[in-house]
């Protein structure tokens, strides 16, 4: 194996046996997955931002054009999309706070894992009532209420 490549994900047998120093593993750890999720939610939100500025710009064309396009957002099935957006933004926002605490708070790196659990609990606490409220509204609209 070339000495300069970093492909040694599996490592040599001897390395695999040696216990890893606690707190130094990043690859494959929870912290890495929070970083992956941060990227994915950020990219998705950016794509929505692009579409959203374009649809809002229709107010400059005519009230009719704007209302027609905005009506597509009111379709009951669009709550899946709106809920997904909210879920992405909420995770990105709370995890962003965690990233800042890791960066700027001297004790941050030590508490990165409990802070991730806090982010996830906070996310659940907000997304569950939001989902219930939106789904209830959509169901009553779909089946008449």
């Amino acid at each position: 194996m070339a000495s300069t490549t970093a492909t040694a994900a599996e490592g040599t047998p001897r390395e695999a046996v040696r216990p890893r120093a606690k707190g130094t593993l990043y690859r494959g750890d929870l912290g890495m997955w929070s970083w992956v999720a941060h990227r994915i939610t950020g990219v998705l939100t950016f794509f929505f931002l692009f579409v959203h500025v374009l649809d809002t710009a229709l107010v400059r064309v005519s009230p009719n054009a704007y209302d027609t396009v905005i009506n597509t957002y009111k379709h009951p099935l669009m709550i899946v999309f709106e809920l997904g957006l909210l879920a992405a933004v909420l995770f990105h926002a709370f995890n962003g706070i965690r990233v800042m605490l890791v960066d700027f708070w001297s004790e941050g790196p030590r508490f990165q894992r409990p802070m991730l659990w806090t982010v996830l609990v906070l996310w659940l606490v907000l997304i569950i009532p939001a989902a219930i409220s939106m789904i209830t509204r959509a169901v009553t609209e779909l089946f008449g209420g």
Partner: peptide
């Protein structure tokens, strides 16, 4: 988060948004 709270949840959420609202 303020924007999404206003647009998706308060006063009927997305259903009240139209040109007059903007």
């Amino acid at each position: 988060l303020g924007h999404m709270l206003i647009m998706l949840f308060l006063d009927g959420g997305v259903h009240r948004i139209n040109f007059a609202f903007v």
